[in-house]
Amino acid sequence: MYIDSIKGLEEKANHLRRLVLDMCVRAGTGHVTSSFSCAEIFTALYYGGVLRYDVAKPAWEDRDRFILSKGHASAILYPVLADLGFYPAGELDKFCRADGMFGVHLQNDVPGVEICSGSLGHGIGVAAGLALAAKMDRKTYMVFTLLGDGECYEGSVWESAMFASHHELDNLIAFVDRNRLCATDFTEECVRLDPMDKKWEAFGWETVTIDGHSLEQIFAALGDFRSRPNQKKKPLVIVANTVKGKGVSFMEGQPLWHAVAPSGEQARRARVELTGKGGK
């Protein structure tokens, strides 16, 4: 499903937020705010002509690999894959139900999903291994991964970051969803993560910092990414400054909304706000 206008993509991002909200409200669980912060990134990847995939052949050998390292954002990947037709949209109604196919964290037996994830600091290493395998076999698929900023507390992230730059994995592109919140606190008050970009630079990555809610900036940061392999000699990280809970005013930037789905009047208000932004 390719959407060729920024306006259309912006509407899609809010549509996805609405799908996330409905799915999580119905189940009474799910990481709503962690999914809202990366809605534009998902929209660009899946609807903006970035990722190569084939809905009819989820295991297509030459597909790009999207490795969701922040596995709790499954709450938005599952709606995306349903919206694209990897499985019926009715599956979203069964989120976390006994007769459903998925729960809160990511599982790789769902069509279109590459890995199991939920524990943090894992996905980027898997992505690096896949990117290295592609290089060994001279395959042209790209490997994308999305990390949370709180995830960057995990030491394993930096083991993998070091590895990826050493092996010049220029077919690997990472996004860091820099929403400045971890599970219970603001990251800079928990344990300081800034300067995030300098850390990645120091680990040998080409680093671009953007407004992660600007689709124009996401596309600009990606640039002509298909020409990167064997040219750039460095993996690319896009540090996307975002707002956790983006799109629903009373949830934005609030630590208490981590892993919580709104209910009752709050759920209704959230729907109204998103619908007003095109999230039908």
Binding site: G121, M136, D137, F163
Partner: peptide
């Protein structure tokens, strides 16, 4: 040498990279 990957003293990354390589058909 093309089939030998030394990850350094980084065992966590060794497992995740190994998994990625296996997913890539190795």
């Amino acid at each position: 040498s093309a089939q030998y990957v030394n990850v350094g003293i980084a065992e966590q990354n060794m497992v995740t990279v190994a998994s990625g390589l296996a997913l890539g058909g190795k």
